[in-house]
Design a protein around this nucleic acid. Structure first.
Lengths: 342, 342
DNA sequence: TTGAAAGCGCTAACAC
DNA sequence: GTGTTAGCGCTTTCAA
């Protein structure tokens, strides 16, 4: 059995209370007694029982992260990096991290949030991949449960978030392509419903418009964020009578799928057709050709999201609860001027 | 405040004890009383306080996963898929998953394992990326703490694991290359110390030897499991006076890095030089050219590891505590016969 | 069939 | 300074 306060108390010959206070470092315990207590505690190898402490303190010192997963072959480089970010930050503050995996917008996901809101499970929650009319955020706000989101949404409650400025990022790419001389630019949009996809799509359209360029509807196709999806839908762009000279994908994974299919068609990426992604996952520097993309400091976003949550839990509302990170354009070989400059 | 047994007891007009037993479904509570209790519980929205239950039952219903992370730009597709596997399986059995991230073989990692062993933190642990003389496993065995490893190791204790048969997998690739006519095959080895790397390297060497093929030392280089590492060390292979006609990487990430660098040198992968990876991460089907590799059912391995752990925790030692999964060869365009058949 | 009492390990208010 | 008492919410003897 584990060593408890009672064991120490018996050994030292004082009450459990005194041991508790001695170990906590209260100054209303005689220095001598405290030393003796500490000594015995070390010697016996005492470590507090967290469950008991939690029951007493009514807090768990645990953060929750409900990870949206998509099917068994789920593998998004985003998550491992983000998880490392929040995990390390949480550990630094002495918090544990409870991870649940659920399909987005599923009953089990809803149940997981309900469980959190009920209290006692975790002290706060990290929400990622915000959605339009995000039910999760509505629930959390309604119950005033502590949380921080990675991403904004369009609900009418004010909530703390860390987000990338997707609109700014997309503007950089589109402008980059336009500066290179591209006029017909195709877009592989993320699925509707995801906020970050919406920002990226809108910014794509508005930047095109701001440059007096048209975007006929058939230049915008929709993928499912995976390589497979990117590969499949880029076909539609390639099959157009008037093919675009550049293609922007809503994320790197889809861009990589597109790269694959485009090259299978015998086109040279960078020369015959320019391609760009979004996220700058580690892999994007090593595709053939390397991918032009927008860099996102995912690890850092994870850390900051987590740090903000811990502030909130401890009753220190952050000075700025709305952090918007400005992304950077990373130009690599997948983007070049259009083949025939008009 | 949350609804407690006391609230229900007061409402129904019975004791807390009776409520507890009624809800637990004991048959020594009058059917009528039980119904009434259930009714009120539902109506009030009662949910048991897990912390309290844990303190009483002396178990946490939580599994621990201490994830080895490497630096901030950490992003291994392996982990998100594995995590989804264990997460979903755990949820199915009503277990929570506590995740810690630590650099392998660091003090903080050791501390995390020590904390687990002490008891009360989690009911059992999942260990991944087993190492030679794995201190973590020694500790866990010594304290008889419930755990299941993904991977074997060479300590003298017997412990439950799920593992891929890396030797068999490597044999498949090497044989595939030899059958294609390759004689000089280079190998990008995983860093020493990791068991799975050792199995793969050894099997590479022994399969070569079994085919009466030499492997001069300069044909084996060592990478760090990342794309970057693969790209860097493949150079050494390419710079050899007598260049190999095929290169096998210890994992897909390094293979992808190698692909990149090889093509930058103007060589055509699949024709001028054959390349293979190991793992079959989702991306490997979408590289240029698509990568020949060994398929690993990571998600499934995660599920099985988790299922086995839960069995053990509940005192049902699995019939077969040593599961070795046989991998499959996936042939794609990155592998072809040597350019000049001799 | 039900309830009173004890206890999981810890902390906190209050007295001595 | 230190101990007594109470209580966090739950489960489980044991007695009624």
């Amino acid at each position: 059995m584990a060593v408890t306060l009672k064991d120490i108390a018996r050994e030292v010959g004082v009450s459990v209370t005194t041991v508790s206070r001695g170990l906590a470092g209260y100054d209303d315990v005689a220095a001598e007694t405290r030393e003796r207590i500490q000594e015995v505690a070390d010697q016996l190898g005492y470590h507090p029982n967290l469950t008991a402490r939690r029951l007493q303190k009514q807090r768990t010192d645990t953060l929750g992260f409900i990870m949206p997963t998509f099917g068994p072959r789920f593998s998004d480089p985003f998550f491992s990096e983000f998880l490392a970010g929040i995990g390390n930050e949480a550990a630094g503050y002495g918090y544990d991290l409870l991870v649940s995996t659920h399909a987005p917008d599923s009953d089990r996901e809803r149940e997981a949030y309900a469980r959190a809101v009920r209290g006692g499970w975790v002290d706060g929650l990290i929400v990622v991949r915000t959605r339009e009319n995000d039910e999760r955020i509505e629930t959390l706000c309604a119950h005033e449960f502590p949380f921080v989101a990675f991403g904004r949404t369009d609900c009418n409650c004010d909530f703390p978030y860390v987000d990338e400025d997707g609109a700014a990022g997309m503007r950089l790419i589109v402008q980059h392509f336009i500066d290179l001389g591209h006029r017909r630019i195709g877009f592989i949009a993320p699925p509707p419903g995801l906020m970050f996809g919406r920002y990226r799509l809108r910014s794509f359209l508005s930047t095109m418009a701001a440059n007096n360029l048209e975007t006929p509807p058939d230049l915008v196709v929709e993928g499912d964020m995976t390589q497979r999806g990117g590969a499949e839908v880029v076909e539609r762009l390639l099959n157009l009578a008037e093919r675009p000279t550049a293609v922007i994908a809503g994320n790197d994974l889809m861009a990589i799928g597109a790269l694959n299919r485009i090259q299978q068609r015998g086109l040279r990426v960078g020369q015959d057709l320019a391609v760009a992604g979004f996220d700058d996952i580690p892999l994007s520097a090593y595709t053939t050709p390397p991918l032009t993309t927008i860099h996102q400091p995912i690890y850092d976003i994870g850390r900051r999201t987590c740090a903000m949550l811990i502030e909130i839990i401890n009753g220190r509302p952050p000075a700025n609860p709305h952090i918007l990170l400005t992304p950077e354009l990373v130009v690599r070989e997948s983007s070049g001027p259009p083949r025939t400059t008009n």
